[in-house]
């Protein structure tokens, strides 16, 4: 059964009762919330997630509720709780959906050491993976959103799950989080793209989550091998430039971008080295989305 098979009342009853149990990527999540905006968010953006029954194993028990107490009426806030542990300070209630998405990212990154988790978007075409790591402002999410509308399938806009067991990257396709100008850019690029409600004024700016239809995402159980590693650098008004990146530097950058490298230690080092060994690595500077897509096309179609 999928979340879309639940009617709105059943969905809300689960969320405000024992928890809505669903799968995202390899993870079982139970979510409890009394906040209507999150219910809408789930209904709109997670329709193809499998709803789990009561005896399925749950990895993350999550609660995202308004902060109780006196302050609540003056300044309504939301707090994310991972089974009683609250990793973040409360956020304004209007940012509830962002709190849920960030919180779930946090859970995955701090618990799931069966993967080396690299801060990177990952997409796939014809069985070959493209990794786009990048710091905020590099444009990785924008690029990733555009690629899912250009024949690539999404694994994640945020984290590459590199399996400790087989060295393959596994999908955890969730809504793509877009910020500020990127939202307009993608709406102009793909008229068919659907979005959740806008979350204004977060620490990262305005956010909208883009829905990723089932056919644009890689099936959760399928691992892929990455072939291309591209570090995107957005720079307005520049010339497009594709520069080969040495494997030594690529290793260092990936390690810097790995959330749990320090946990996996030596094993993580071997995994990064093996990964880099099989990757074509590039630094990529681009001035706008169209040039970025052309550049990616050029990189990924070149014969080695």
């Amino acid at each position: 059964m999928l979340i879309s098979d639940l009617d709105r009342n059943a969905l809300k009853a689960h969320l405000s009762g024992q928890g809505l149990r669903f799968r995202t990527g390899p993870f079982g999540v139970s979510l409890r919330t009394s906040i209507p905006a999150i219910a809408c968010h789930i209904e709109k953006l997670y329709p193809h997630s499998e709803a789990l029954d009561n005896d399925a194993f749950i990895d993350f028990h999550i609660t995202t509720n308004p902060v109780s107490g006196l302050r609540r009426r003056l300044k309504p806030q939301v707090v994310f709780s991972f089974d009683g542990y609250k990793p973040f300070k409360p956020l304004p209630l209007a940012q509830a959906t962002a709190a849920f998405e960030w919180g779930l990212n946090w859970c995955i990154a701090s618990i799931s050491h069966q993967y080396l988790i690299i801060h990177s978007a990952v997409v796939e075409k014809d069985g070959l993976g493209l990794m786009l790591p990048g710091s905020p402002g590099s444009g990785k999410s924008t690029l990733c959103a555009a690629l899912t509308h250009s024949g690539w399938r999404l694994l994640s806009d945020e984290m590459a799950l590199l399996s400790v067991t087989d060295g393959m990257i596994y999908p955890v396709p969730r809504p793509v989080s877009l910020k500020n100008q990127s939202i307009q850019i993608i709406k102009a690029f793909a008229a068919e793209a659907q979005f959740g409600d806008r979350v204004a004024g977060t620490t990262k700016g305005d956010i909208e989550h883009m829905y990723v239809p089932e056919e644009n995402a890689l099936q959760a159980s399928m691992g892929i091998h990455a072939k291309y590693l591209v570090f995107p650098h957005y720079q307005s008004g520049c010339e497009t430039e594709v520069a080969p990146l040495s494997k030594g530097r690529a290793s260092m950058s990936l390690i810097e971008n790995a959330f749990n490298f320090n946990i996996l230690g030596h094993q993580g080092f071997e995994m990064i080295s093996d990964l880099v060994g099989s990757l074509e690595c590039h630094d990529f500077t681009y001035p706008d989305l169209q040039q970025a897509l052309d550049g990616i096309e050029q990189i990924t179609s070149a014969k080695p």
């Binding site: 040495s246 494997k247 030594g248 290793s251 260092m252 080092f269 071997e270 080295s273």
Partner: peptide, 11 residues
């Protein structure tokens, strides 16, 4: 110490 040589570089 674990060494990985990549051409002119080593991690």
């Amino acid at each position: 110490l674990v060494f990985r040589f990549w051409g002119e570089e080593c991690v």
